[in-house]
Design a protein around this nucleic acid. Sequence first.
DNA 1: GACCAGGAATTGG
DNA 2: CCAATTCATGGT
Length: 264
Amino acid sequence: MNTFNLKHTLESGQFFRYDPMGEWNYLAERDKFFKIRQIGKKIEFVGTSPEHINRLFGLDQKYSKIIKNLAEDETLIPALEKYNGLRIMQRDPWETLVSFQCSIMSNIKKIKLNLNLIAKEFGKPLALDSVKQHSFPNPGEINDLDRVKSCATGFRARYIHAANALVDDKYFENLRKKKYEDAHSELMELPGVAAKVSDCICLFALDKMQAFPVDVWIERIMKETYPETKNMKNDEIRQFAWDRWGKNAGYAQQFLYHWARLKD
DNA sequence: GACCAGGAATTGG
DNA sequence: CCAATTCATGGT
């Protein structure tokens, strides 16, 4: 198997409903609830299929090729080495959409709280070993604005509630087939989805590996690392990223993000 | 570029 | 303990 580091991957702001318990990590996404651990190079999991694991953690990507390509940019090398094995996940698009609608003016801890409350409020009970969880509701099932508000979502509740009525799983499968630019702009038609949130969905759920979400962390680290971006606006930073890293821009972003958040 | 958004977490009393 | 303040971030 290619290089994979479970810890780096889970802790890099792509996935929220996971709980470490001893060596194991319990993960919930949509109707799946499973546990996974990594000991040395060995990955073990219970509660889902190898296909799902390969897909979710991007284990079928040409990782060494991507890293080798990014390493041509010398400034990335420290991050590439330190967080070797960090993968871009390929998640369920619907839960990813709601996750990043929740991310507006929020933080990882609170996003996690919001998603678990939504699952508890609208999903079905699940259990593995003696650990309890809830499935994430399907599109169309988050259909009561007051109950969405009761999940501590605040002003985001109306975004989530409105998007819930506009999409279904098929909508996302169609987006997956489209090219990045089209998928990106279509997603922005949804309430609570502007460029950044759209890029997160493209990158983490729709196989659009050139997507380059620019949040405050990326903006900061880009301007520190590449002085020529100092006065750029976010969409100019994205263009800079594509000029520099092309189709691997998404991976560059993920390493930079993790580096920016953990370096100090 | 300014303005706005709701709640959790933390601090101060 | 409760009240006040801080924190954190992206959409419009």
